[in-house]
């Protein structure tokens, strides 16, 4: 073990609080990728994963929200089965079934969404953020996720861009429903309690 004995520099209280929440939001994003709600018939299950980047941006802002999603991606690269269907590894992020762009998009989306909602690095209380910024941040998160994910899918699978967009199009209304659910959760005050502490 390599240890330092000369001086110990403690991490500030604010940083500890944001870091702990970032770790748990990363774990929540990973958990949401494993739990879904079945839809009737042969429809694909209603995945809860987009709530991860939504909550990261809303609760933690661009810096700490970005850290949360970076931790999620790196834990998967290190071997934790955190991606959908319990997959892991750098290979899955880069090329696995062509959806790695959506994982990278979650990270970029959390940063962009957090920046729009909080308009500064340090997260502010969501009580002080107008609804238009909250919805705008979530919409931007979704837009970034698809802006990165669809071309990435096209590149990995060799599908023309328009065909890749067609393949992903049915998921857009479902993600908009998730966005509205996330807005409902914010307006219900479930996130305010935390963000004011």
């Amino acid at each position: 073990m390599s240890q330092e004995y000369e001086s110990v520099e403690l991490v500030g209280d604010d940083a500890v609080r944001h870091f702990a929440l970032a770790v748990l939001v990363a774990a929540l994003t990973a958990a949401l990728a494993q739990v879904s709600v079945p839809l009737p018939g042969s429809l694909p299950p209603f995945s809860l994963q987009p709530f991860g980047p939504f909550f990261a941006g809303l609760l933690l802002g661009p810096l700490w929200g970005g850290l949360a999603l970076a931790l999620y991606v790196l834990a998967g690269v290190a071997g934790a089965p955190v991606f959908s269907n319990g997959n892991a590894g750098l290979g899955y992020v880069l090329v696995g079934q062509g959806t790695g762009g959506f994982i990278v998009g979650f990270l970029a989306g959390a940063v962009v969404g957090g920046a729009i909602v909080h308009r500064r690095v340090r997260p502010r209380s969501l009580d002080d953020v107008r609804l238009v910024y909250q919805v705008g941040g979530l919409l931007a998160t979704l837009a970034v996720v698809y802006a990165i994910g669809v071309p990435w899918l096209s590149w990995v699978t060799g599908l023309p861009l328009s065909r890749a967009a067609t393949v992903m199009a049915p998921y857009v209304p479902l993600d908009v429903v998730k966005l509205l659910v996330a807005v409902g959760i914010v307006r219900g005050g479930y996130l305010t309690y935390r963000s004011t502490r």
């Binding site: 110990v8 520099e9 403690l10 991490v11 209280d13 500890v16 609080r17 870091f19 702990a20 929440l21 770790v23 748990l24 939001v25 774990a27 929540l28 958990a31 949401l32 739990v35 709600v37 209603f46 809860l48 709530f51 909550f55 429903v177 998730k178 659910v181 996330a182 409902g184 959760i185 219900g188 479930y190 996130l191 309690y193 935390r194």
Partner: peptide, 30 residues
């Protein structure tokens, strides 16, 4: 989805608070 997300968030926040306390108690350092 809303019920699951809210329950997940509540548990996550409780765990984050406990982790914050544990890190401070153990002098989390750089």
């Amino acid at each position: 989805a809303r019920v699951l997300a809210v329950r997940g968030l509540n548990r996550t926040m409780v765990r984050a608070d406990r982790l914050t306390l544990a890190l401070r108690a153990r002098c989390f350092a750089w």
